[in-house]
Simulated assay, not measured.
Amino acid sequence: MATIKKLMTLLSKEGLVEERAGIIAQFTNGRKSSARDLNAIELDSLCTFLQNEQQKHQNDVDKKRKRLIASIFGTFKLANKQVSIDYVKGIACRASKEKNFNNIPPARLDSLYNAFLNAQKDLTFAKRLVDGFINEQISYN
């Protein structure tokens, strides 16, 4: 059974305390605008909805973190360098200017992911270019 305290905790975690009257009104189709007016079923379903939204957001951020780790590993693999997960997380933290990998904001995770994908493309292009020059030199000799 959900309580008003639980509802307020969920709203504060999402930074929605100021908009709670609007959220409650939208959830109840305009019938109520205060958490005290909600009955037990409405309170329970609103808390469940907010928890599901938080979990969905957390899953999206986790997926972005894993994508970034994979792109950094891919970049080092193209450069023929073996690195550890701690090293990769350190690279991501330095690039984002965060002390903790889990504190990197989602938008920054996306931009770093794209930057490392571009680095992979550059390394692949440079490798093909160098291989072409080597083959050209071999054919002249």
Rank of each mutant, 00 (worst) to 15 (best):
D60K: 04
F76Y: 08
F27Y: 11
L109I: 13
K64Q: 15
N135P: 02
D122G: 00
I104K: 05
T9Q: 11
R36L: 11
K32S: 04
I134W: 01
S139P: 00
E98R: 04
S34P: 01
K89A: 12
I104S: 06
N52A: 14
N29M: 06
I41R: 07
K13A: 07
K32N: 06
K97A: 07
C93K: 08
D110M: 04
Q137T: 06
G132S: 15
D122V: 00
T124H: 00
D62I: 14
A92C: 09
E53I: 05
K64E: 15
K99D: 14
N39H: 02
K66N: 15
E42V: 06
P106M: 10
S96H: 05
V17Q: 11
H57N: 13
D44T: 14
A25Q: 12
N59A: 15
E19P: 02
I138H: 03
N135Y: 11
L129H: 08
N114Q: 14
K81E: 13
V88Q: 06
F133V: 05
V17K: 07
L11A: 09
P106I: 06
S12Y: 02
N29I: 06
F27R: 07
N100T: 15
E53Y: 03
L123R: 02
S111W: 04
L112S: 07
A21I: 09
I85H: 08
K64C: 10
A126S: 06
R36Q: 12
Q58L: 10
S33K: 13
L78M: 06
Y113V: 02
K32I: 02
K56T: 05
K63D: 15
F73H: 07
I91H: 07
I72F: 08
I4S: 04
A25N: 09
K89N: 14
E53T: 04
A92E: 13
H57D: 11
V83M: 10
S33H: 06
V88A: 15
A40L: 09
K56Y: 12
S34F: 00
R94I: 05
F125E: 09
R36V: 12
R31C: 05
R128N: 03
M1W: 03
S84W: 00
D60I: 08
L43V: 03
G90N: 14
M8C: 09
D110G: 04
N114S: 14
V88I: 13
Q82R: 04
S139F: 01
V61K: 13
E42K: 02
I72S: 07
F125N: 02
S84H: 08
A35G: 10
I104P: 00
R65M: 15
I134K: 09
F101T: 14
